[in-house]
Write a protein that binds this DNA or RNA. Sequence first.
RNA 1: GGAGAGGUGGCAGAGUGGUCGAAUGCGGCGGUCUUGAAAACCGUUGAGGGUUAAACCUCCCAGGGUUCGAAUCCCUGCCUCUCCGCCA
Length: 424
Amino acid sequence: MLDPQLLRQQLDDVAKQLSRRGFQLETKILSELEIQRKTLQADTQNLQSERNSRAKAIGKAKAQGEDIAPLLAEVGTLGDRLKKMEQQLADVQTSLENIQLTIPNIPHVSVPAGKDENDNVEIRKWGEPRQFDFAIKDHVALGEKLALLDFATAAKISGARFTVLNAGLARLQRGLTQFMLDTHSGEHGYTEVYVPYLVNADSLRGTGQLPKFEEDLFAEKTQGLYLIPTAEVPVTNILRDTIVSDDQLPIKYTAHTPCFRSEAGAYGKDTRGMIRQHQFEKVEMVQFIRASESYAALEILTSHAETILQKLNLPYRVMNLCTGDIGFTAAKTYDLEVWLPAQNTYREISSCSNFEAFQTRRMLARWRNPETGKPELLHTVNGSGLAVGRTLVAIMENYQQADGSIRIPEVLAPYMGGIEVLKK
RNA sequence: GGAGAGGUGGCAGAGUGGUCGAAUGCGGCGGUCUUGAAAACCGUUGAGGGUUAAACCUCCCAGGGUUCGAAUCCCUGCCUCUCCGCCA
């Protein structure tokens, strides 16, 4: 959510900045509602004030044993009028809020202008794609040949966009997850947390998935909960409705969770293999930070995700997403794209964003500034570190050998119980 | 699943229809005293809106209701705790 003050005072400027990302702000409706709100609120408060003073007078008179009947008569229909006006005000405020909840974040000045992913700007590249002297296979062919990847069985159990991992590959996924968590908690200073995978609507509203993106979620019917699309939701909501002290900052969490996405808008996209699944594993990093430090934190957090790719020796590039491609809640996003030889291209494996106060305003996540003594909104920065399923794909394809076997990256050796190669 | 208790400020905990946004204690902050510290004492200390500043308004889990007036009464929901049963 954007700052309501900003929407009141600099509506046209906000509209202009939002147009950079192709969003058209309904300035007319907003300013009309805002005028209504203002007058209604002032009138309502005046009536409330009158009610309060009259009620107090009655109380006082009664305490002194005076006859309160004439005072009661004076009050007349004030209560009813007030009730009506309060209702009107609430309606206007609800309308305003409903609009505000669907307005995306303002892109940071350093976000390049552009329409779609083709306009994203490459910031840097790391590693050399390996030259193969044999005909390479994609992860599906590799995995099925080794009997490690089983889409048919997953389809029988659940349907499309699921997979069953077998034996060494299942272990590799577990090892990868462990490796990522160990690196972030051990070397990057994050606190590991374990969180619920089912969350309520308030949490999803807090991080911005609701109300706009309900169709992307899996809903659980009996309790009205939702399966998390990312650990960002439960982890960020740890600080919802909380004021932390200055000496607790920055707060840095890492968590591993499965993620569940309906992929409603992705029919026919990435149908082969485990690139786009309804269920996948991800390790997430989340930072809560003072406003003045959030852009520096974004750079550092991005480097934490890069560290994982570097340790795994997987070539990648860093993209600065353009105004047309950044997510609804983000002010700036770097995507990390890993080299997939079978697709002969780079594919997204991590997304690192600064949300500024967009989420914390919805969540009321604040810190107390010791200089003013007042609570201020925190900024949130988060990123995948990394998407485990896609990392698995990248390892399979990049570490494949001529005989169809797959080497295990050296850093994962401690997690593999002596397995050095996945083979028949 | 059955039975009961309860949700109040950073924490603990009073308040059960009217000068209550809320006693008191602890904690925090400022000060006095002290060479310094502790102790003691004095003062101060919730959030949001609004205003140049004030006035003023809202918030005692959430949402409804009763009333001139609700933290306090009624209804619904959520959450927590205790006991019994079941159970990874």
